[in-house]
Design a protein around this nucleic acid. Sequence first.
DNA 1: TCTGGGGTCCTAGGACCC
DNA 2: TCTGGGGTCCTAGGACCC
Length: 437
Amino acid sequence: MFALVDGNNFYVSCERVFRPSLIGRPVVVLSNNDGCAIARSNEAKALGIKMGAPWFQIRHFEESHGLVALSANFALYGDMSDRMMSLAAPLGHRQEIYSIDESFVDLSGIVGDLTRRGCIIRQRILKWIGIPCGIGMGATKTLAKLANHIAKTAERKPGSYPAAFAQVCNLIHLPASALDALLAATQVGDIWGVGRRIGAQLNDAGVHTALDLARLDPATVKRRWSVVLERTVRELQGTSCISLEHQAPAKLQIACTRSFGQAVLEHSVLQQAITEFASRAAQKLRIQNGNAAQVLTFIRTSPFRVQDTQYSRSTVVPLRRPCSDTRSITQAALAGLNAIYRPGYRYAKAGVMLLDIAPASYVQQELILEDSDVDVANVKADRLMETLDAINHRFGRGTVSLASSGQSNDVRAWGMKQERRTPGYTTDWEGLAVVRA
DNA sequence: TCTGGGGTCCTAGGACCC
DNA sequence: TCTGGGGTCCTAGGACCC
């Protein structure tokens, strides 16, 4: 038995905590570069604004409907997320943090009225940090996801589901006929694990509702689609196939990629960007105590600019030996850049990915053919990186960086556009809200 | 003019082995 | 004319998630 706790329109809700005047108004939070909408208030959804809608296509709502758009403030959302997660955890014995705004909670062994328990937790999160949540409960993770969908939809669109399921929806111990009715009222594409492509294929095959999907034979589904969809069918039928991951597994790959605020043509600017991405990725790698064996670098033009000649290439450079050293990783990434850079294109995006990651404690023994002491060099590198991370943690990101990363953010030719950024209310002393009497 | 970032898993097919 | 059988490993690409 699982619960899923999910913040409503999470990024928008975070902004509303500190700017209550946004409540009741259509609000969107924009992606990096103020590119497209990545969170929408209910009022914005009601205007028909879709997830991922480009800002330039929806900005006319500013004039006509008072739409407010904000640049994403991920430091703030991350901090609010930590607070929400710690308040959701007591719902059960174990919690899996699934994304910035969602956590699964294992409900096994919890006695008493689960629905009531959910309502108390929901109220507490709303009162203590101001974030409205939906809570869904079900026998499997997929059913808990569905319950959460029902909890939020019943609140947002009256009449879509019985009002009793709004906000907190508990499908555990629901009579089979009642569960079937809810499944029948749910589009198959709204089920967790059914995306656009599979959804369309299912519709073609006459499978339209979640109930249709739940009634398919798992073996047939596996043959015709995949084991992934088979698992979804079994989960809808009440057999748990996806377990709770209490401890986040170490990442297999780590990426740092960005679209540029404006098109980049020069090699030297790409070099600065790639240096920055490689440094950031290496730092993430050190946080999880890993070593990477390969570094992927990619650059590409904008596929949306059809008038431009397109160019998109990536390359993988193996490291001499697995490490998390910013200098070696950056060196490899820049070597990759040199291999794929071609002048004359309007580059819109670039990135660095670290591949083949293993715990730093796994050391491949090697036959030393060089006349140098590898162990001593490794210890020195580790201490240098520790110091680098400590300084940047204490004095702010980018205090110490490689010279090839160029100047600071405000003068970077490739820097992001963020014209509607709100203060770091909880993450920056300068951003603290001021109360006026 | 203007379109995000960061992940995972599965599968098919090719290369290669004996 | 007619060209085996069984296996592993790796990679690219597709699908999904938020």
